[in-house]
């Protein structure tokens, strides 16, 4: 059971995995681009991103470009470390099999 326990519950959903994967290899990514990449709805995107922000895995920046509000996301150091260890335990799961 040891290895499975290490899998981070916060990254369980497919959408959160997607958000984290995208942010691992990019700097700031804005709402619209993330939404189209993951192919999800506005509400879905908003709820999952705020959950990740609550866990301090990502930071959210809100600004105005002209008159339009723009939301962007970036992974935090904690998020990066947690996601890497999550990936490592996922991989270990297959090696021990």
């Amino acid at each position: 059971m040891g290895i499975i326990d290490k899998l981070n519950k916060d990254f369980e959903s497919r959408v959160r995995l997607g958000i984290m994967s995208v942010l691992m290899v990019n700097d700031w990514v804005d709402f619209t681009e993330m939404k189209t990449l993951l192919n999800i709805t506005d509400g879905n995107m908003a709820s999952h991103s705020s959950a990740l922000e609550k866990g301090a895995y990502i930071e959210i920046k809100k600004e105005f470009v002209g008159k339009k509000p723009k939301t962007s996301y970036r992974v935090t150091n904690l998020g990066r470390a947690s996601f890497v260890s999550h990936l490592n335990s996922l991989e270990k799961l297959f090696k021990t099999k």
Partner: peptide
Amino acid sequence: MNQKHQEDLSHIRSMMERSS
């Protein structure tokens, strides 16, 4: 579970590829 994790891994890989 194994199948789910396998799918997770390939999803992660494809998201990283597609976004960057």
